[in-house]
């Protein structure tokens, strides 16, 4: 019996969210009195993989063939399934992100294992297995019971945090019985993000809405983002109007994020927008309308004109950092 953690390979590197999933997995394994193990697809140095041992992972199976450097949903599902069988895994944990969403539902069918996505805490009970997840885009929590012997869950990013638990992490190669030259997902081109901080990974986000009054006014917002090391985002009216790229759209149909700090500038706070940001640890709202609904979800609020407030806030942060 063991708990398996799926470790996403970020260009041969690990990220904080990997350690969070590992922390969750080892905590769960502890309550089930079994080991927490990990699987990693694609090339990664052992020195990098060893770090998983800091978060309670006692064994890591690496699937190093270069053919696994590109996500192929069907193939990756087969590999994880083979690991589950070999290692007698009872619970599999994925990150609730693009890659987790690509593989976990497929694995659920392959293993006939109930799957609950976007969980935010440890199970309420293990027998029966009941766990909480967010539903209705964060407007409620649900308790879901998994009725199959094998269980799959995906953990909402930034919901559990890091919990160190030093363990010796044994790294072994895993040779899956699959055809690596799978041609079903033929990549013909790639565009790599080069600049800026990726919105989905960002610890801090500065976001602009219609109250910014036009794309020409974004400079002070970008300045603030740069000074605090934040990604930039926007609300839907802004991306619909073409002021900013739709890649920056945060909200229900756009990106759903959970940074530690979210600064909403000139964003009124429509339900659709709040659905995309409500899991942020701390929300600051800057708006000239004291009745804007964004103040109902914000931790800190400032009433006033963005054009005047943003430079002052940037200066205050610089002073705080001693620049």
């Amino acid at each position: 019996m063991s708990v398996l953690v799926y470790i996403q390979n970020f260009g041969s590197k690990l990220k904080k969210q990997n350690f969070e999933v590992a922390s969750y997995g080892s905590k769960l394994a502890e309550s089930m009195q079994c080991p927490a193990i990990a699987v990693v697809m694609g090339t990664m140095e052992d020195s990098e993989l060893e770090k998983l041992g800091n978060y309670g992972i006692s064994k890591t199976l690496k699937v190093t063939d270069e053919g696994f450097n590109t996500l192929i949903n069907k193939l990756f599902t087969q590999v994880v399934q083979q690991v589950v069988v070999q290692e007698k895994v009872t619970t599999v944990i994925f990150p609730d992100n693009n890659e987790g969403k690509a593989i976990a539902p497929r694995l659920s069918v392959k293993l006939n294992a109930g799957f609950v996505s976007g969980v935010v805490s440890m199970p309420v009970t293990l027998e029966p297995f009941i766990i909480s997840k967010r539903v209705f885009s964060g407007k409620a929590l649900a308790q879901v019971q998994i009725n199959s012997p094998l269980k799959i869950i995906s953990l909402a990013i930034n919901s559990f945090g890091l919990h160190e638990a030093k363990t010796v992490n044994q790294i072994v190669s895993f040779e899956p019985k699959v055809s690596v030259d799978d041609q079903s997902t033929k990549i013909v081109d790639r565009k790599i993000h080069s600049e800026g901080i990726s919105l989905l990974d960002a610890d801090r986000v500065v976001s602009g809405g219609r109250g910014m009054k036009g794309p020409e006014n974004w400079k002070p917002l970008e300045e603030l983002a740069k000074v605090i090391g934040a990604a930039t985002a926007c609300s839907r009216p802004v991306s619909d109007a073409g002021w900013r790229s739709h890649e920056e759209h945060v909200g229900q149909t756009g990106k759903i994020i959970a940074p530690n700090l979210y600064i909403a500038v000139g964003i009124s706070g429509a339900t659709q927008h709040v659905a995309g940001i409500s899991r942020s640890k701390c929300i600051v709202a800057i708006n000239n309308d004291p009745d804007a609904p964004i103040f109902e979800v914000a931790d800190y609020g400032v009433i006033g004109d963005a054009a005047q407030i943003l430079p002052k806030l940037t200066e205050a942060v610089k002073a705080f950092k001693g620049e």
């Binding site: 109930g114 609950v116 409620a140 308790q143 879901v144 009725n147």
Partner: peptide
């Protein structure tokens, strides 16, 4: 394979 057994408002 799964069932919703209860709900809560935050």
């Amino acid at each position: 394979l799964t069932e919703y057994i209860g709900f809560q408002l935050p």
